[in-house]
């Protein structure tokens, strides 16, 4: 068994977590119906922890060696750490599993009862069956394309940007900033990807290293590091320099650039790429201070307030926007 741990440490740790923590809790609380999903969550949590550790091990030295800004880490970075742990290891995966399990049951059941069985990518492209790595990469490209448009629309609509501003309000961007999102913004993202999943199926779950790689690129792109991948590399994978342009003060709000999460291709195709070599200061001047430097609850509440003002302002004024865009 010990040898197996080194063959598949993800599963070994997830199995231990499932047997010694998740199942006893489910048993004690009358939740044994979720035991199968519990193992999915255990795997998710182990992947998440591995993502955090790998990102930490790589990005921290980079930020020390080649920082864009030299300043001591503020309290708001600690809040970003909390966001990361919540998002990748803790509560959010549980909520995602339980909530979207129910949504998926309802929606899939609706279609199945009417004779349409939601496909997987392999049923749409039968040649993919038996080639899981190729399947995974194709899923990654499709989902990254979908994420480009989700991200772009979250800047386009004022009410959506009112929530997304939590992500942009951070003035001291670090590799921890990737998961700094409003809960409602996360919810909208999950809905967005839920719809995609219904159309092409959910991606396979058996390639933790590839998942790790994708999430690592996203975290790295937020690092406070003067790192560029060179002329060609910048056009293949999103770099810290490329994504910093998106977080730069001039790009906050409606007229932004570099929306891509992992691949810069979509920005190149749709004319939103900025490959200039400047490293602008980050943040959103229109965001209230609580959104930038408040605690986790303060940031979340600030997002709700801004959303309320945006929606209310539109209703009262009868206008198409509430004036937060630049």
């Amino acid at each position: 068994m010990l040898r197996y741990f080194f063959q598949d440490p993800f599963n070994a740790l997830a199995g231990w977590l499932q047997s010694h923590l998740v199942l006893p809790i489910l048993y004690a609380t009358g939740g044994m119906r979720w035991e199968d999903i519990g193992f999915g969550w255990s795997l998710f949590a182990v992947y998440g922890l591995a993502q955090v550790l790998v990102t930490f091990a790589v990005c921290l030295p980079l930020e020390q060696l080649a920082p864009v800004e030299r300043r001591p880490l503020g309290r708001e970075v600690l809040t970003d750490v909390f966001y990361t742990l919540l998002s990748r290891v803790g509560l959010l995966p549980i909520v995602t599993f339980v909530l979207f399990y129910q949504v998926q049951v309802t929606v899939t059941g609706f279609f199945v009862d009417r004779g349409w069985i939601p496909p997987t990518l392999e049923t749409l492209l039968p040649g993919l069956l038996g080639h899981p790595v190729a399947t995974f990469f194709l899923y990654a490209v499709i989902l990254d394309f979908a994420d480009y448009w989700r991200h772009r629309l979250s800047h386009r609509f004022d009410w959506w940007y009112a929530l997304h501003a939590v992500h942009h309000a951070q003035r001291q961007m670090t590799f921890w900033s990737d998961d700094r999102n409003h809960l409602l913004d996360d919810f909208l993202s999950a809905l967005w990807f839920g719809a995609i999943a219904l159309a092409i199926g959910i991606p396979p779950f058996q390639f933790p290293l590839l998942v790790l790689l994708l999430r690592f690129v996203e975290s790295l792109s937020h690092a406070n590091a003067r790192v560029s991948f060179g002329w060609l590399g910048e056009r293949l994978v999103v770099s810290p320099r490329f994504h910093r342009a998106h977080h730069g003060v001039p790009a906050a709000g409606r007229q932004s650039c570099n929306y891509g999460g992992v691949l810069p291709w979509w920005d190149m195709i749709f004319g939103t790429a900025d490959f200039s070599s400047r490293y602008a200061p980050t943040g959103d001047p229109t965001a209230e201070e609580a959104m930038a430097s408040g605690s986790y609850p303060a940031q979340q509440w600030a997002g709700v307030r801004r959303l309320g003002r945006t929606l209310l302002g539109r209703k009262l004024l009868g206008q198409g926007s509430a004036g937060y865009s630049r």
């Binding site: 068994m1 197996y4 598949d8 599963n11 070994a12 997830a14 199995g15 231990w16 499932q18 047997s19 193992f39």
Partner: peptide
Amino acid sequence: PDGRIWMTLRWAAH
């Protein structure tokens, strides 16, 4: 056939 019981161990991948 030899009388032994095979079983899947879900959390141990064995």
